[in-house]
Design a protein around this nucleic acid. Structure first.
Length: 432
RNA sequence: GUGGGUAUAGCGUAGCUGGUUAACGCGUCAGUUUGUGGCACUGAAGACCGUCGGUUCGAAUCCGACUAUCCACCCCA
């Protein structure tokens, strides 16, 4: 019988790695908390139309990357991103009628049917935040500040912030026209995809890697020159606020973003350390989305952070978020009576929150000691007929090899707890 | 969806000008005289060499298809 394998583009997060995920998630939650964001949890699948309307009918994500499933005559789509569902949930539950701005964050997995490559999976995990209600650039600065703070606390390096403004729909319309009239005379010289882009999404032309297109596009008009007064002022203020906060950024007029809902501010945190898919975090403002989804016009913005990409970057840089959790005490029983006692003791220890283990393999003393060492047990305690008869046993501190005798009375658990805490404190003190 | 690379034990690799029992390191398990781990030593388990088909007396080794995986394009986190 052939072994069944996991679907293409998915990943197993094994016990060792999941420690690190937990550490990362913990850090994301606490940092989001300090910025006043609360967690929201939404369904994994939504009505397909939500993404068509929210993400945009013409986007690649909607056109060719969605996992749409039909079951019992109902059709749904696995979320390809978090924003549409989150805004839907906020609208459906009236969150936008509460005090504004509303600040929510989420940690969830997204699904896109793409060809997997470095930093790109078909199921991937995203941390994201959405802030709804504020049109002010201060909101932009705050959201960007949160992303920056997270990246700093996680400890990644070489991640640069790129920002741009793609204006409001009015600015964009004028800009598209300008682009088209600039590129039209060169239409035949452009690469195939760019000829398509010219009709579909002319802003993408500027991002083409083909040297020919790059050369042609060298003197193309820049969106920033086509912003209306309000959009321009918004962008200027944002830049000033970022500078004031000491957040370094570069203005990159080529940032476009592939999701239709973005307006004005768009930004990316990018690294070159993990290959071609270097956008660790991407987001921006989407002032039109809420109305698009049937709510009262409400300005909003947010970002999504690719957790696999973040961890990938971290690992490339030699950083690991957490050490594997060990075992506080491993009890080594010898003989049946001792094994029974060991079971009892481990159960009591666990009740006090102490990680305790004992033999479930019927191994020899020597083999058990080896095992205790492998799982990183801090203490071991051999339990045999002698110990049971004398009512005391020897506790061994594995790292130092130090031994001390403890009574096996009903105070044993609290006594061990004291020893263990003292040991941790001493370790922490030594580390300082 | 397009292009290129790769596919040998749990992991990392060697073998690949075709020729008897597919090798090594790590890991796993057991043991090194009977009550104490890390080191060292001994031994064991574990691979129908991705799948299917072809060439051949004979294929892990050559050819083809498929699948998976990696990298890149596209696009995005």
């Amino acid at each position: 019988m052939a072994l069944l394998k996991r679907p293409n583009g998915t990943e197993d997060i094994l016990p060792a790695a999941s420690r690190e995920w937990q550490a990362l998630e913990q850090l994301l939650r606490t940092t989001a908390d300090t910025y006043g964001f609360s967690e929201i949890r939404i369904p994994t699948f939504e009505q397909t139309e939500l993404f068509c309307r929210g993400v945009g009918e013409t986007t690649d994500v909607v056109q060719k990357e969605m996992y749409t499933v039909t079951a019992r005559e109902s059709t749904f789509t696995l979320r390809p991103e978090g924003t549409a569902g989150t805004i839907r949930a906020m609208l459906q539950n009236g969150l936008l009628n509460e005090a504004l701005p509303q600040r929510v964050y989420y940690i969830l997995s997204c699904f896109r049917h793409e060809r997997p490559q470095a930093g790109r999976l078909r199921e991937f995990h995203q941390f994201g935040v959405e802030m709804a209600g504020s049109p002010h650039p201060a909101a932009d600065a705050e959201v960007i500040g949160l992303a920056r703070q997270i990246l700093e606390r996680v400890g990644v390096h070489n991640v640069e912030l790129h920002i741009n403004s793609i204006g409001c729909p009015d600015c964009r319309k004028r800009y598209h026209e300008a682009l088209r009239s600039y590129f039209m005379p060169h239409r035949e010289e452009l690469c195939e995809t760019c000829q398509e882009r010219l009709d579909k999404n002319p802003m993408r032309l500027l991002d083409c890697k083909s040297p020919v297109c790059g050369e042609i596009g060298k003197d193309a008009p820049v969106i920033l020159d086509y912003l209306c007064e309000e959009c321009s002022a918004h962008f200027e203020k944002l830049k000033a606020l970022l500078t004031e906060q000491g957040i370094a950024f570069t203005v990159d007029p080529r940032i476009v973003r592939g999701l239709d809902y973005y307006t004005r501010t768009v930004f990316e945190f990018v690294t070159t350390d993990i290959g071609a898919q270097g956008t660790v975090c991407g987001g921006g403002r989407y002032d039109g989305l809420i109305a698009q989804l049937g709510g009262a016009p409400t300005p909003a913005l947010g970002f999504g952070m690719g957790l696999e990409r973040l961890l990938l970057t971290l690992h490339k840089q030699g950083t690991v978020l957490s050490e594997p959790k060990g075992c506080d005490i491993y009890i080594v029983p010898m003989g049946e009576a001792a094994a029974d006692k060991a079971m009892l003791l481990t159960a009591q220890l666990r009740q006090e929150g102490i990680c305790a283990q004992t033999d479930v393999m019927g191994r020899s003393l020597r083999a058990q000691m080896k095992y205790a060492d492998k799982i990183g047990a801090r203490y071991t305690m051999v339990l045999g007929d002698n110990e049971l008869a004398q009512g005391e046993a020897v506790l061994k501190q594995m790292q130092s090899g130090e031994k001390l005798t403890v009574a096996l009375d009903d105070k044993f658990v609290s006594r061990f707890s004291d020893i263990e805490i003292a040991d941790r404190l001493a370790g922490a003190a030594a580390a300082l």
